[in-house]
């Protein structure tokens, strides 16, 4: 419950303040978005499976964003940033999809 509330607060603040992302950080925005979605779906699934753990949620979200950003940063330095960014998005996208499927199975038993 608190999580949903905090999520709504975060979205509201983001929409209300409309913060500008510095130009140097803009390549990492898509990755942060996908990592955030992944953490969110993972948390919902874990909650439904009854194994949700707050510490795991926090640490996995922050670590995933940082590692993904680091990978893309390294890729940028050696000229394959765009491709690595695509790879990160693909991996997270697959995870989001399977988590969403698991959530669906839990909710609808189908």
């Amino acid at each position: 419950m608190i999580i949903l509330l905090a999520l709504a607060v975060g979205i509201g603040v983001g929409l209300y303040v409309e913060p500008t992302v510095p130009l140097g950080l803009q390549p990492y925005l898509p990755i942060a978005v996908v990592a955030a979605l992944d953490a969110l779906f993972g948390a919902v699934r874990a909650q439904l499976e009854g194994i949700f753990d707050d510490k795991v949620f926090v640490v996995s979200f922050i670590a995933n964003v940082l590692v993904a950003a680091l990978i893309v940063f390294l890729g940028d330095q050696i000229g394959v940033g765009g491709q690595l960014s695509t790879g990160v998005v693909v991996v997270f996208g697959i995870r989001i999809f399977s988590n969403a499927a698991a959530i669906r199975r839990h909710l609808f038993r189908a």
């Binding site: 608190i2 999580i3 949903l4 509330l5 905090a6 999520l7 709504a8 607060v9 975060g10 979205i11 509201g12 603040v13 983001g14 929409l15 913060p19 992302v21 925005l29 898509p30 942060a32 978005v33 990592a35 955030a36 979605l37 953490a39 969110l40 949620f57 926090v58 979200f61 922050i62 964003v65």
Partner: peptide
């Protein structure tokens, strides 16, 4: 953390 997740989504 949840606020951060929401913030990132909204910024995107």
């Amino acid at each position: 953390a949840a606020v951060a997740v929401g913030l990132v989504l909204a910024i995107g």
